[in-house]
């Protein structure tokens, strides 16, 4: 059984599309307050692992939250989809998107209670998007929209967040800002964030943990060990990782935990 502080545990997880396993034999332990990067080349099973956590794919093995199967804690998990898939011309304001986070809790017809509105307000305040409340989402930058989606996830009341490529399409200052925010967000409130990443140079100093995949588990654990140059080379192959590694190893030296 998992230790009290080890909130999220993957125990020998194998998830498959049809009969072909897409990611297999993943074991990892994530404590409260960890910001975990899920890394690996295309087709390594990064998104598959998120889908298994959401209960969208059948899997073998166990995914435990506080020692209980994740399916029993579905409301503690919030999914933050890729921004690319969203229609940003959709007729919605920032506040309306964040309010969607309460839909599951209040059902199809009931109105928002004071508590629901408070949850929406708190999420908006925490993500610092108060001045954007009434703005149509068509007039947001990529970084602002990402914060709106995070606020919606927060408004659900979850404390485990699955982010699918949150940094895609953001320029360097917005990435920094978002990563700073995620870091504070995770450590100050004992939340767990798992983020699928494409760029290795965003790892340090923000992420505390890493889960490196290449359909099988290459490494999992604190970022300095799990995402070491050797492990990344093993996952990405020498050619692909070569231009990234020098930068990463420089940045990796500054990791403080």
């Amino acid at each position: 059984m998992a230790h009290h502080h080890d909130l999220l545990v993957f125990d020998n997880v194998t998830a498959s599309y049809g009969r072909r396993p897409a990611v297999h034999h993943v074991s990892a332990v994530l404590p409260c307050g960890s910001l975990c990067a899920i890394l690996g080349p295309n087709g390594a099973g990064k998104s598959t692992l998120l889908k298994a956590m959401m209960g969208w794919l059948p899997f073998e093995g166990r995914i435990l939250i506080d020692g209980l199967p994740a399916v029993q804690h579905r409301r503690r998990i919030a999914y933050v989809p890729q921004r690319d898939g969203l229609d940003t011309d959709f007729p919605l304001t920032v506040e309306e998107v964040v309010a969607q986070g309460r839909f599951q809790a209040i059902g199809a017809l009931a109105g928002f209670t004071a508590a629901d509105r408070a949850a929406v307000d708190a999420a908006i305040q925490e993500l610092g998007i108060d001045d954007l409340r009434q703005r149509p989402i068509s007039r947001l930058s990529g970084g602002q929209l990402q914060r709106v989606l995070l606020a919606r996830a927060l408004a659900t009341g979850a404390d485990i967040f699955l982010l699918d490529e949150p940094l895609n399409g953001l320029d360097v200052p917005s990435r920094r800002e978002l990563l700073d925010q995620l870091r504070r967000w995770t450590t100050d409130h004992e939340r767990i964030v798992l983020a699928v990443l494409h760029d290795l140079d965003c790892l340090a100093p923000w992420f505390s943990h890493a889960l490196v995949l290449r359909t099988h588990l290459v490494a999992a654990g604190p970022v300095a060990e799990a995402a070491s140059p050797e492990r990344l080379r093993e996952a990405f192959g020498a050619e692909v990782a070569a231009p990234v590694l020098p930068r990463f190893s420089l940045a990796g030296a500054t990791v403080r935990r």
């Binding site: 969208w56 998990i77 999914y79 933050v80 989809p81 229609d87 959709f90 969607q100 839909f103 599951q104």
Partner: peptide, 22 residues
């Protein structure tokens, strides 16, 4: 009228709709 919230989520963001138990 009955499916307003489901329709909104389904049109705007199917992934989130599904993840929120829709």
């Amino acid at each position: 009228a009955l499916g307003y919230r489901s329709l909104l989520l389904e049109c705007f963001d199917r992934g989130f709709h599904r993840s929120a138990g829709g």
